[in-house]
Amino acid sequence: MSFLLACPICGPRDVYEFRFGGEILRRPQPDADEQDWVAYRYLRANPAGQGREWWFHRLGCRRWFQAERDTTDNRVIDTWFAGEDGHV
């Protein structure tokens, strides 16, 4: 893997500067069923195609941001800082 990911602060960098933070998910309500919690903890959409995910610029500015990436060719379509509605 050597695709470029555009950090909103630092610009395009080699993916190895970052840490993948998982798919963007909605956290269940505190009183949700255990089943909903299990899904939140362990089940992932894992799309073959465009997906929205978290990334952390581990060796750069050390900020968390979100990205839309096509998993079939690692083309990064967009990156942005999380807004309130995007966060778990």
Binding site: I9, C10, R13, E17, H57, R58, L59, G60, R62
Partner: peptide, 10 residues
Amino acid sequence: IAMAPMGNVR
């Protein structure tokens, strides 16, 4: 300014 790894350190 840039923040980036050099020799595997930030």
